[in-house]
């Protein structure tokens, strides 16, 4: 067969670099973002921008080593967050951010590996990976933007959609029980579990810093509004109203059993740090059980 592809010429390197140099704003936090990547894709009123800012502020306040911090994401609106950050970033297949991150971390334990992804990505298609990474206590940080639906594909129901919620695939109201992510994370073995809403910006930032510095599988859930899809169909108001209502309805607690922190369509949202324990990580145990017994030099632990 004779093959004749349509001509496709790559732009010269000089032009690529030139365009790149022009692509940065003046905001002081811009230095944490990759050049030429803003504007982002998110709708106005979306909580993902706030979560990204919380992460960037965590990088600043927590003085993260940008050379050694790696962000991995899956598919969905928040999945694009990875690509905005001026770090080594990997935007993987749907649901697979956690095992990809596991490979990165175990192959180079000196990296700080953070997964930023959504509720559908992490808990429906990727649910199995979540429970197993938590069980193994792989030393990674997981940040979940939970907006109760699949926003990128137009607002379908998912594993965190509250009972009675209307989505494009639950037009009469959701009849499935949702996951309570805090409870699930604790039961699966996470060493740190926190939940905040989009307007808890400082708390989100501090939980992210704590998680990145803490050895083991840490989980931060951020309740973020999706006014375009979830909000509109359930008459929850615009993005700002949703954020305010999430904040006003939140109850800071350290005493509530994670089992009792489920989130409904409306009503109270338990926020705070629910788990903060110490446990040997996967690599600690692997060093002890496998590497040492096989008489090999010790693999370096998290610095």
């Amino acid at each position: 067969m004779k093959i004749r592809f349509i001509d496709a010429e790559a732009p010269p390197a000089s032009r690529i670099l030139e365009n790149l140099a022009a692509g940065h704003g003046d905001h002081p936090l811009d230095r944490y973002l990759k050049k030429g990547r803003i504007p982002h894709i998110w709708c106005s009123g979306c909580g993902n921008g706030i979560l990204l800012t919380a992460f960037v502020k965590a990088m600043e306040k927590g003085n993260f080593d940008t050379k050694k911090t790696v962000v991995v994401s899956g598919i969905g609106c928040i999945g694009r967050a990875a690509g905005y950050l001026d770090l080594d970033t990997y935007h993987t297949t749907h649901g697979r951010a956690i095992p990809f991150a596991t490979g990165l971390k175990l192959a180079n334990p000196k990296l700080n590996v953070v997964v930023i992804s959504g509720d559908g990505d992490l808990f429906a298609i990727g649910g199995n990976h979540f429970i197993h990474a938590a069980r193994r206590n792989v030393d990674i940080t997981l940040i979940c933007s939970n907006n109760f639906n699949y926003g990128m594909t137009g607002g379908q129901g998912g594993p965190t959609t509250p009972l009675e919620s209307k989505t494009t695939t639950t037009p009469y109201g959701c009849s499935e029980h949702p996951f309570n992510l805090v409870y699930l994370a604790k039961a699966s073995g996470a060493v740190y579990v926190a939940r905040w809403t989009a307007l808890h910006t400082h708390e989100l930032r501090d939980s992210i810093i704590h998680s990145v510095n803490k050895p083991g599988f840490c989980f931060v859930e951020a309740i973020t509004p999706c006014p375009t899809a979830h909000g509109r169909r359930n008459k929850l108001g615009d993005g700002l109203s949703m954020m305010k209502s999430y904040r006003d309805n939140s109850v800071l607690t350290t005493e509530l059993d994670p089992e009792d922190t489920a989130i409904g369509l409306k009503g109270k949202i338990a926020v705070g740090e629910f788990v903060n324990i110490d446990k040997p990580t996967f690599m600690d145990m692997y060093d002890e059980c496998a590497i040492c017994r096989a008489n090999a030099p010790k693999k370096s632990k998290k610095s």
Partner: peptide, 23 residues
């Protein structure tokens, strides 16, 4: 001093080796 890990399934195994190779 290498790493052997048994993943939860083959999807995860494949994802993990790609991640490790990126590292």
């Amino acid at each position: 001093g290498g790493v052997y890990i048994q993943m939860e399934d083959e999807i995860a195994s494949m994802a993990a080796i790609i991640g490790a190779s990126c590292a």
